[in-house]
Design a protein around this nucleic acid. Structure first.
Length: 651
RNA sequence: GCCGCCGUAGCUCAGGGGUAGAGCGCACCCUUGGUAAGGGUGAGGUCCAGAGUUCAAUUCUCUGCGGCGGCACCA
């Protein structure tokens, strides 16, 4: 007999080989009916699988959160059958579960069209209605290969070949249809339910390799209930409203046009945002002991050959020929910073030397990669390179991480993720150096007590890196901040310092960007705040709007007072009703409106209306402006009330 | 770069082999109205570009460019 322990701590004895279904039946009739799978020692498996040893077991019903991935996986199989029913001769490949849904990749001569999706959905519903049981069979490798070869499923043959020796080759049947699959599955197709929707068609390379043929992928979403599906579709809709490309237009921040693909035309309001961010970062960096420099935008190709960029990155560089020379637009600032470091003999006493630049870099990104502000060909980095000794690495990395966390915290990112990318296959430098570098970064992460995930083999060729990743409104991840250790470039470009021993030594270089790309960070910020930027960032902080033209003169005085207080203000004297003005400026996401009518003009007050609030507050003019001025301070310049007078004393 | 879809007014979009429409915005006029759209009049288009088919192309076909959704890429 074997002992099965249940989540409530109770246990029972069963014959070895008992199935989850039998166990469920032994517990209760209703549970047996609802069960779709089991979780055996933490792993999901088929309800019909025999259990041969003592185990902890949870019966999974369709309503359990764990069942969601089964619903989605089953839906993928059903979709594959549906597609093959509708278009015989289509080859199926792989169809995994992903966040919020599933996909399946097909090889079919004629492309799917958007009109095909409802047809496939209908066929899926028919298959689900038939409610055929999912049954598992274990086949031999030869049997599986022979079968898939015979029916022309060449990709499946390849998949069978890829299954390691000694691993079972599982076949799942659903009625007439079968598929090679790792499993597990629920008990029958009917369990998939109705809460699914096919979302989009896309191309995808076989096995994710661009040298392989391109397959057609169909993405779907599936949920336990129609309410969940509806909620999900609603979430997507809401997220799309936050898209920075849409908000950027609505808020008049920037635009793109055909003549400059991947290059931003920053409008006055967007540029205001841009410079506000730089001002903030400049203060933060100065405080952290950085010096700011500016290096040339174009440098002779020979320098990029020396640095290794031409070989490693040349395909992505913009070049220009002049005076029989080739110049490259800088894709990175590092070689320039090394030149500045090299200018004048450096002593160990100069280290660590932290060189920062808001440099605009140019990278020829593949056309298909461009994406609003998130991925552009010309962007500004808040870049810095720290030249230091080996001994200083940990301390410097720690400081960078602290600053990074502080800055991300000040923008309210609670969904920041940190990835640690270690040594790639193609790399330079000895294993000892890599050990040391990776160790240093790990220490930093541990000391900071932050959560991080390993990104194996994704480091730069010259050193390991940390990536600070933020998610946009539509769920895409973007790397923003980065910290990279580099034991390579200083040597290649001949940088050295004189140590305490009087000898030449190679400095270590730490590459680091906080926002990463200002453009990308701005895109993320816009989506993060859904356009409702905090006061200190808002391009227009306050609009002074009149109710009647009799208040024009007063409104102008208010406007001037706002400007004098350093507020970014606009004045709206138009011959429009106040409702109209309120609506328009609310839609433009202006955080505050100072409304003045006859009453305010007479009494020297303002009716203060904040974005998103229905209630207004009538305040004396001076008080309203002083309050707003205090609230409009950047996180790093905001001072406590008690200090305010001191700071402003010279006025 | 690859696969698919798309490109019509400043914006959002409809239309369709016989040289174009709506709403919003814009301009002007009336209206001075108290916190999310007052009314009227008007201007505004190389229908992405080039080639082809056709008596005729914004519409169909091809090529290019750009955008969107994925994939690959992101040093």
């Amino acid at each position: 007999m074997i002992t099965i322990t249940f989540p409530d701590g109770q246990s029972r004895s069963y014959q070895p080989g008992v199935s989850g279904a039998e166990i469920a039946a032994s517990l209760s009739k209703s549970l047996a009916k609802k069960a779709v799978a089991v979780k055996l020692n933490g792993t999901l498996q088929d309800l019909a699988d025999p259990i041969t040893a003592d185990a902890e077991l949870t019966i999974i019903t369709r309503d359990d959160p764990e069942a969601l991935e089964l619903i989605r996986h089953d839906a993928a199989h059903v979709m594959a059958e549906a597609v093959q029913n509708l278009w015989p001769g289509t080859q199926v490949t792989i169809g995994p579960v992903i966040e919020n849904g599933f996909y399946y990749d097909f090889d079919k001569k004629e492309p799917f069209t958007p009109e095909d999706l409802p047809k496939i959905e209908a066929e899926m519903r028919r298959i689900i209605k038939k409610n055929a049981p999912f049954t598992k069979e274990i086949w031999s490798r030869e049997q599986a290969k022979a079968h898939f070869k015979a029916i022309g499923e060449n990709y499946k043959v390849e998949l069978v070949d890829a299954i390691p020796e000694g691993e079972e080759i599982k076949i799942y049947r659903q009625g007439e249809w079968l598929d090679l699959c790792r499993g597990p599955h629920m008990t029958s197709t009917g369990k998939v339910g109705n809460a699914f929707k096919l979302m989009k068609i896309a191309g995808a390379y076989w096995r994710g390799d661009s040298r392989n043929p391109m397959l057609q992928r169909i993405y779907g979403t599936a949920w336990a209930s129609e309410a969940d599906l509806k909620a999900y579709l609603h979430r997507i809709e809401e997220a799309e409203k936050r898209d920075h490309r849409k908000l950027g237009r609505q808020m008049d921040l920037y635009h793109f046009q055909e003549e400059a693909p991947g290059a931003v035309f920053w409008h006055a309001k967007g540029w205001s945002l841009f410079t506000t961010l730089i001002d903030y970062m400049r203060r933060r960096q100065k405080e952290a002991g950085y010096i700011e420099v500016n290096s040339p935008d174009m440098l002779d190709k020979s320098l990029w050959e020396k640095s290794g960029h031409w070989e490693k990155f040349g395909e992505n560089m913009f070049t220009t020929e002049i005076d029989e020379k080739t110049y490259c637009c800088k894709p990175m600032n590092c070689p320039g910073h090394v030149q500045i470091f090299k200018h004048g003999l450096k002593s160990y006493r100069d280290l660590p030397l932290r060189i920062a630049e808001f440099g605009k870099v140019h990278r020829y990104e593949p056309s298909g990669a461009l994406h609003g502000l998130m991925r552009v060909r010309h962007f500004t980095q808040d870049d810095a390179h720290i030249f230091c000794t080996r001994e200083q690495i940990t301390d410097e990395c720690m400081k960078i991480n602290d600053l990074m966390m502080r800055i991300y915290g000040e923008f309210g990112f609670d969904d920041l993720r940190i990835k640690f990318s270690d040594r790639p296959e193609k790399r330079v430098g000895s294993d000892e150096i890599w050990d040391q570098a990776e160790q240093a970064l790990k220490e930093v992460l541990d000391a900071a007590g932050v959560k991080w995930e390993l990104n194996p083999g994704e480091g730069a060729f010259y050193g390991p890196k940390l990536e600070y990743v933020l998610r946009d409104a539509i769920g895409r991840d973007w790397q923003c901040g980065t910290l990279q250790l580099d034991f390579n470039l200083p040597g290649r470009l001949g940088a050295f310092f004189i140590g305490a021993d009087g000898e030449k030594h190679e400095p270590v270089m730490i590459h680091r960007a906080m926002f990463g790309s200002l453009e990308r960070f701005l895109g993320i910020l816009i989506e993060h705040y859904a356009g409702k930027l905090p006061l200190w960032l808002a391009p227009t902080q306050v609009v002074i709007a009149t109710i009647v033209s009799d208040a024009d003169a007063y409104a102008k005085r208010v406007f001037e007072a706002c400007q004098a207080a350093g507020l970014r203000a606009e004045i709206d004297l138009r011959n429009e009703k106040i409702n109209y003005k309120v609506r328009e400026h609310s839609e433009a996401k202006v955080p505050v409106m100072f409304v003045c009518g006859r009453r305010e003009a007479e009494q020297g007050t303002l009716s203060v209306r904040r974005l998103g609030e229905r209630q207004q507050q009538v305040m004396p003019l001076d008080e309203a402006i002083a309050e707003l001025e205090a609230q409009a301070q950047a996180p790093d310049t905001a001072v406590e009330d008690s200090d305010k007078d001191l700071v402003r004393a010279p006025a």
